[in-house]
Design a protein around this nucleic acid. Structure first.
Lengths: 334, 334
DNA sequence: TTTCAAACTTACATCGATGTAAATTTGTAC
DNA sequence: GTACAAATTTACATCGATGTAAGTTTGAAA
């Protein structure tokens, strides 16, 4: 920066002012400095700036696993949203095969991020309060009592109700549900189960625990296993509401394997609208969350906290929309 | 750090030595310092260390798109491999919808990473030499003449030859190929095309350009479109070798849509072994690269360069293995 | 007891930017 | 021509760690 200042014939501070976008800099100075910057192909030292300013313009994104399509697509959306605001994203995977440590942020990086977007999966969002970090956190998922953090969530209950109502309208009445948490209702799974039960109830149907298929993880594998188990119990069903698309794709696989046709014998509906859902055989009806909207809102809330421009210190909750996408897996009426 | 030193009754430098793992520190001192660290729940300031040391222990990973399953799974593997060596990964997406800029590393972050793992897709790896960065780079893909960078690659040609030979052994003879680059052979696509042609030739079959289905991008969408186009030309074929799984999954969809049965009428084989391939209908035969091996090798090479422990300055090339996974899409003999 | 290396301390410069505050120049309106 | 705000400069401290180099203590071997 010294060199640039010398070359442009201005002071070091002026160069700094130009590069950090200080308001009161004349256009003349700005061009002169930028010319010198170009000539010397100077690039500012981020580490020094970080040290001095105390900010890194990096935000963390804590997700269970990048290899799950939903989270990969979410990460993509968050990276783009953050990029628009001049922030870089550091991804932390919270489900790790190599250690028992499930801290959302490795201690090493605690002080190199300005804030965190935290997407817990089956974890109860109460864990958020245990994060114990000194930067702002935005949680993806419904707000829980006592949480100080901002939350961005979709209407899980309403969306699952819509999905369930959709198959009810097709005339299905024995509707299984896939993805129930075996250890009692928490977080996202609890809300989705609520939506499912509400829909049934409003059709005068009593939810039947025999049609609850548990899955602690929501991978394809678990969808296959849970569906096989459900079939093995001898329970009869004519539809499956799945708590995410991976489970649903696994279910499709297991149903076919057992000679059940989709959608003729069983309607299947998923949740997430990951890319695969459009291309599976049959293609999957699902709930499409507004991923970009979620990402934008989460980044916006977080950046407001980081930069101190949030209107109030009270925890906020943003609820994003969803859409029911009807594809082949629920196409044929009963 | 001052406070910790005072609390432990040692000098600041000793604290620094303990925390940075300096060799000549007695166990007594180490425990004493660590106790003080715990009591004050002190955490070292990364920004200051970065500034002083000139390293960040962050490596960049430049991939086309995180939302593509292959790259998400690769990123996952790289993050784990890097984590084992004490490095954090910063992901850069090189295909961006929002700008024309396709620089592998945004200038802002150029100086906050110690090295880069670069996975070009359709780009010719020659672009690597234009990267013009002052840190080491490891390229995923075959080494090109003149490249100074280390390369980690799988045997693309051999793997595609194996895939093609597999369908030849089933008795298929009119074998289409999906994913050919429309603008001439470059990079990965070129190697895979070579392997396909080699396999045909060794069976005494002349490659037929009418069976070349071009796709500039390798998404499911392009697989559908290219397959539809291929069918529309009226060309007859009894197998499709696809340059990646997304294309293959798109092809499965298009074939079904056109009343062609897989594997009875057409054998389909993919490349990458992404998770979906096991769960599609029919499940997809494919080439499984050793993703973990690729990630481990790439990180190892890069870290050696960063830390100056590489045995020589000459560019190295590591070739990783692969496996042919046979599933339903190539199950029935002709 | 002597000797020498390892362990540790001390003091200070340094990495490269930005904040502060006071001083000076420039520019515009009256 | 004066007044005043904006633009700019200057000088320096500072963010929090680590490298250097010289000096002191400790401990084990000769």
């Amino acid at each position: 920066m010294q060199d640039v200042a010398a070359r442009a014939g201005v002071s070091v501070k002026t160069v700094s002012n130009v590069l950090s976008g200080y308001e009161h800099v004349s256009a003349k100075m700005r061009t002169r400095v930028m010319a010198a910057v170009d000539e010397l192909s100077y690039e500012i030292n981020i580490a020094a700036r970080n040290l001095r300013v105390g900010r890194t313009h990096v935000i963390g994104l804590a997700i269970p696993e990048l290899s799950q399509a939903y989270f990969a697509e979410l990460a993509d959306a968050v990276i783009r949203a953050a990029g628009q605001r001049g922030y870089t994203v550091l991804i932390e995977q919270t489900v790790r095969e190599d250690s028992t440590e499930i801290s959302a942020v490795s201690n090493m990086r605690k002080h190199s991020i300005d804030g965190l977007i935290y997407s817990p999966l089956t974890l109860a969002p109460a864990d958020v309060t245990q994060l114990n970090v000194d930067f702002p956190v935005v949680v993806l998922g419904e707000r829980v009592h006592g949480s100080q953090a901002d939350h961005v969530t979709m209407s899980n209950a309403a969306a699952t109700r819509a999905a369930t109502t959709h198959v009810l309208e097709l005339g299905r009445r024995r509707i299984a549900v896939l993805g129930v948490q075996p250890d009692g209702p928490v977080g996202t799974a609890a809300s989705r189960l609520q939506g499912y039960e509400d829909a049934l109830t409003s059709y005068g149907i009593e939810p039947d625990p025999k049609l609850f298929a548990a899955a602690s993880l929501w991978h394809r594998r678990n969808g296959v296993e849970a569906t096989e188990r459900l079939i093995a119990t001898g329970a009869t069903f004519d539809a499956i509401v799945c708590f995410n698309d991976a489970l649903a794709l696994g279910a499709l696989r297991a149903l076919k394997h057992n000679g059940l046709r989709v959608p003729e014998d069983v309607s299947v509906v998923g949740f997430d609208d990951i890319e695969d859902s459009s291309y599976s055989t049959p293609s999957l009806s699902t709930i499409s969350p507004r991923r970009d909207e979620i990402a934008q809102e989460a980044v916006a809330l977080l950046v407001e906290r980081i930069e101190g421009t949030a209107p109030s210190t009270a925890a906020r909750e943003v609820v994003t929309g969803f859409a029911l996408i009807v594809r082949e897996s629920t196409l044929v009426p009963f």
